[in-house]
């Protein structure tokens, strides 16, 4: 299964990855806060991920690593 890893402590909750994801499976986890007080992004349904890395391409803080199985 394709994997998208977020370095949640560095995520600034800007939402560009969610905007970029063609399948709209990334969202800001309003239930969580990272050390900086941001809602970190995460993939809500990882099984749908096609590892296109659009999220990583849009991330201003390079917190996303995308692995294709």
């Amino acid at each position: 299964m394709n994997k998208v890893i977020f370095e949640t402590e560095r995520c600034k909750g800007c939402g560009l990855c969610a905007f970029a994801c063609p399948l709209k499976i990334i969202s800001l986890d309003s239930g969580k806060l990272n050390g900086k007080g941001y809602h970190p992004a995460s993939v809500t349904s990882p099984e749908k991920c096609i590892a296109c890395a659009s999220c990583a391409v849009m991330c201003p803080d390079a917190v996303i690593t995308v692995i294709k199985e």
Binding site: G13, C14, G15, P60
Partner: peptide, 13 residues
Amino acid sequence: VPMHYCPGCTHGI
């Protein structure tokens, strides 16, 4: 290292 840019600032990109 973390970057100081504002959230969503495309300097980072």
